[in-house]
C-alpha cells in the first residue's frame, strides 16, 4: 500500500525521524507505540498526507470545531461527498438524510447527547466519540488514529476499536495502551530515540519485549485504572 524509503521526517529544519524505512500493506491493523514526544504523530501525519485520498484521520479530539453542533462536526467527515452549495445550505438548515445517517452512527457510539448540542459543552470522552463518528461518516478504506480511544474507559475503547475495524480495511493507530495494542492489533511498530526499534507481528511479542524499549510505567498504570 505504501513504503517509506530513507525518508526524513520532521517540521521545518528540525528532523525528528531521520532515514525512516517502513512499509504498510493493505488489510493490516498496525499499532505505533513509543514514549511521548518521539515523533509518532509526525509519522502518522506523514502517512496521512501520502494516503489522504483513501484515509480518514482521527486524532483525539483536536479537529473538532467547538462552535458547531455534534451533527455538523460529524458532517465535516462528509464534506467531500457533497457540493459546496449543499454544504453551505446544510450549515444553516441541516438536511434530513445526513441527519438520519449521523444519528445512527452516534447511537452505535453510545453518543446520547442531542445532535444539535454544541461540542464545546461535551465531556472529553464524548468529544472523542464525536471525532470517531466523523471518521466513520467519512467512509474511507483506511483509518488512521492518533490515540483515538485515550479518553474512553477500556471497555468502551475496545468496543469502538472493533467498530472501527469492521468499517475499515486497514487501521493504523498511534496508541498509548500497550496491552490494547498487543491484544487487538496484528502488527506493532515501536519508535524510540529517532528510529524504529521494533517492527513485528503482535502475536510474537509480550509486554516484556516492549518494556525493553521504553518505560511502560504509565501504560500499566492506565491498564490498572
Amino acid at each position: 500500500m505504501l513504503s517509506l524509503v530513507d525518508i526524513d521526517l520532521g517540521y521545518k529544519q528540525q528532523i525528528v525521524l531521520p532515514k525512516i524505512n517502513l512499509s504498510f500493506n493493505e488489510n493490516e491493523h498496525v499499532a505505533i507505540l513509543g514514549p511521548s514526544g518521539v515523533g509518532k504523530t509526525t509519522l502518522l501525519h506523514h502517512l496521512y498526507q501520502q494516503l489522504s485520498e483513501q484515509t480518514c484521520l482521527c486524532s483525539q479530539a483536536k479537529g473538532l470545531v467547538d462552535n458547531l453542533s455534534i451533527y455538523h462536526n460529524v458532517f465535516i467527515g462528509g464534506l467531500a461527498r457533497y457540493s459546496r452549495c449543499y454544504n453551505m445550505a446544510n450549515l444553516l438548515w441541516p438536511f434530513n438524510k445526513p441527519q438520519q445517517h449521523i444519528s445512527a452512527i452516534c447511537q452505535e457510539l453510545e453518543l446520547t447527547a442531542p445532535l444539535h448540542q454544541k461540542v464545546s459543552e461535551l465531556s472529553g470522552g464524548q468529544r472523542q466519540r464525536v471525532a470517531l463518528a466523523r471518521a466513520l461518516f467519512q467512509q474511507q478504506p483506511v483509518f488512521m488514529g492518533d490515540e483515538p480511544f485515550s479518553a474512553l474507559d477500556p471497555l468502551m475503547g475496545l468496543r469502538l476499536l472493533n467498530l472501527v475495524k469492521q468499517a475499515h480495511q486497514s487501521v493504523i493507530c498511534v496508541l498509548h495502551d500497550a496491552e490494547l495494542a498487543l491484544a487487538h492489533f496484528e502488527r506493532i511498530i515501536v519508535i524510540s530515540d529517532g528510529k524504529v526499534v521494533l517492527d513485528d507481528k503482535a502475536n510474537r511479542l509480550t509486554l516484556a519485549h516492549l518494556s525493553q524499549h521504553y518505560a511502560l510505567a504509565d501504560t500499566v498504570k492506565n491498564a490498572v485504572a
Partner: peptide, 23 residues
C-alpha cells in the same frame, strides 16, 4: 488541525467555512 484532517477533495469554500471560519 481541522483543515489538515478534512476529507480529501473537500471544496475550498466548504473547507474554509467549516474548517476555519466556524472556529
Amino acid at each position: 488541525h481541522t483543515l489538515f484532517s478534512l476529507p480529501k477533495g473537500t471544496d475550498k469554500l466548504s473547507a474554509f467555512i467549516y474548517g476555519r471560519w466556524m472556529h
